[in-house]
Every structure is written in structure tokens, then in C-alpha cells.
């Protein structure tokens, strides 16, 4: 079922919307949740929370891109759950990605306040807009979808070292740009 029809079901308050969403996007959302949580039961719990969150938010929201809308929700919920966990396996992928991401904004800079977040994320989005699509996809796969270097390299048919080097360069450029805009 196409996304427009699924969204239509939400607006009609037809619970079939959840079934259709789950059928179409469980795999994608599950992958993101597992990348962060590395625990099947936690990931399943987050998926359930995701469908509920979407049910409650559409309407009034009418996402232009349902896939993007869902992935943002599942990602946020997964990261929230990760933070709340006192113990548990720390996925290597998340550990590595978080170490890399920390290079971008030093911990002396706060990104907790909504205003600060908005300004920084707008700058990041502007920066991403200047990148060739290929590099932008690489960045988003790593730092939004939290795919491992191995997964990215394997699915795109490039070497792991190519992915690592390219990401390093993008981070360096982004950091330079954020410094230029006096955001860090």
C-alpha cells in the first residue's frame, strides 16, 4: 500500500493503518532500533511505542515522507531507551558512531536547549546540502541510521577504508563549517 493511502487510514482513524505501517516499515525501523539497542526485546518494545506514537500524532501531522517520519520517531525512542538503561550491552556500532559524532561538537558546547539545537541542526542541514549526494548518503547512513562501516561498505560495494576515510573528511569539513559559523 502506498504511503498516501496509509496516511489516509490514519486520518480516517482506521486501525488498519498500524497494520499497514508495521508490514511496510518493520524491517527498516527494526534495523535502526537494533543498531542502537542491540537487544531484540528492547527493539520490539520500541517498535510498539513507535506505532503508538505515530497513531497519536497523525493527524494532525501529515508527513510528506512517511519513511523519514517513522525513522525519526524510532530513532529518538531508541536513543531515549538507550539512555535510560543502566546496564546492558553497548553496541559497538553505536559506540563507534558516538565517538565519531563527538568530534563534531565539543562537550563545552551545549545542545540541550531547543534554540541551540535548532541553530546547529540548521547549519548541519545546510552543510549536507552542499555535499554531493553520495557523500551525504554516507553521512546519513552512519549518523542517522547508525549503520556499521561494514554494512555501509558492503551494501554500497566500496571498501571499509573508503567509508572510514570519507566520513573522517566529512566530519572535519563539518566541524570547520560549524566553527566558521561560530557555533562551536
Amino acid at each position: 500500500m502506498d504511503d498516501e493511502r496509509i496516511i489516509g487510514l490514519y486520518f480516517e482513524r482506521d486501525e488498519q493503518a498500524i497494520a499497514e505501517t508495521s508490514q511496510k516499515y518493520s524491517s527498516l525501523c527494526g534495523r535502526i532500533a537494533m543498531n542502537i539497542l542491540a537487544d531484540k526485546s528492547d527493539a520490539e518494545e520500541v517498535l510498539g511505542d513507535t506505532w503508538l506514537r505515530v497513531w497519536k500524532s497523525i493527524p494532525p501531522e501529515r508527513p510528506k515522507c512517511l519513511a523519514a517520519y517513522l525513522t525519526v520517531i524510532v530513532r529518538n525512542l531508541s536513543l531515549d531507551k538507550f539512555r535510560r538503561r543502566n546496564a546492558g550491552k553497548r553496541p559497538d556500532t553505536l559506540a563507534a558512531a558516538s565517538d565519531e559524532a563527538a568530534e563534531l561538537i565539543p562537550d563545552t558546547v551545549s545542545i540541550e536547549e531547543q534554540t541551540e539545537r535548532r541553530v546547529v541542526i540548521e547549519a548541519v542541514n545546510r552543510f549536507l546540502g552542499t555535499l554531493p549526494k553520495k557523500k551525504r548518503v554516507l553521512f546519513v547512513r552512519r549518523y542517522f541510521y547508525l549503520d556499521s562501516i561494514e554494512e555501509i561498505a558492503g551494501s554500497l560495494g566500496v571498501s571499509e577504508s573508503y567509508v572510514t576515510v570519507t566520513l573522517m573528511r566529512i566530519r572535519k569539513k563539518l566541524r570547520t563549517q560549524l566553527a566558521k559559523e561560530e557555533l562551536i
Binding site: K64, T71, V72, I111, I121
Partner: peptide, 18 residues
């Protein structure tokens, strides 16, 4: 800090996410 930055990236432009 890294987790905080990754969390921030939830707000990336949805065109790029898609």
C-alpha cells in the same frame, strides 16, 4: 556528548533521511 550529537541528528532534513 556523542550520544547527544547523534540525538540531535534525529532532526536532519527528512529529504536527506529518505
Amino acid at each position: 556528548q556523542g550520544i547527544a550529537v547523534l540525538s540531535l541528528f534525529s532532526e536532519l532534513d527528512e529529504r536527506y533521511i529518505a
